[in-house]
Amino acid sequence: MANSIDVVGAGARRHSPAATADAVRAARTVSRRLTVRDKKNLGLGLLFISPWIVGLVIFVLYPLVYSLVISLTRYSGMAKPTFVGLQNYVTAFTDPLVKISAGNTLFYAGLAVPIGLVVAVVLALAMNRNVREVAWYRTALYIPSLVPAFALSFIFVVFVNPRFGVFNQFLTLFGAGNSNLLGEPTSAKIVIVLMAQLAAGNAAIIFLAGLRNIPVTLYEAARVDGAGPVRQFVSITLPLLTPAILFNLITGISGGLQVFTQAYVLTNGVGGPDNGTLFYMLYLYKNAFSYASLGYASALAVLLFVVGMLLAWLVYFISKKFVNYDVAAG
């Protein structure tokens, strides 16, 4: 990070109670054993997170164990489950629709996550403009996130209309004939990625909150140093936005792997054309509630959970290298 910022940061840290606290912390790390103080801290920490622990047991562990057990059975939700061992998992690895839907989901997530991050940052910068009427911009940019997905799909099909839709108008410039973007498996997925961007306001307000966290003094100092807007963005805004980026990245991956609503609404739950928008979650859902194969659906869910957990682990531990929580020191 730019030197000028360190200067500001260093100034901020020279403070007598803080220095004392540093000393306390240093003393604490000397002993690796759980001291009385450590125990007290642990107790306090657990006390604060206790609502979450209760929630974990009720809303996560219980359904998860339930799914794990059910995934070893054939179960319709009504009659008694029949134990089938790992049969559902074996089926999952040979089911062509699992392969197709997993491929669709990875395709979607691979596009939607990075595009979503960029769009959200752009919206956040717009929402953070120094103008009197910024409240209106913020509201306008956020409104699509408030609109139910089915209503969004009504306008989106106007955008992608083969004759007067903007996308096709653009393609026509290159001499293409009219085509139904929702009628072809690959372009249909891209349309869904684009439609998801209308709801980028959600990620954007997290970035906005992140932008509000950055002290203006940093920019002032950088300007004194002669840094231009690009330099400021790269060396101040981006690094200090990394906590928000990590959040939007992980929740983006989670949302991408579980993409469901847009496809459900745009294709009336069918996942067409030619299974082009049959996403993993949609297939899982249909198995659970349309075909009443709850055992199989649970096995699919367990597999998704494992993949998600691994991805989260990967991102979380890589993130320790790039995420910067120290606003003042940089």
Binding site: F59, V60, P63, L64, Y66, S67, I70, I250, T251, S254, L257, Q258, M281, L284, Y285, A288, F289, A297, S298, L300, A301, L304, F305, V307, G308, M309, L311, A312
Partner: peptide, 8 residues
């Protein structure tokens, strides 16, 4: 974050 909602 990665627990699929249909199974819950």
């Amino acid at each position: 974050l990665f627990i699929p909602f249909p199974v819950t």
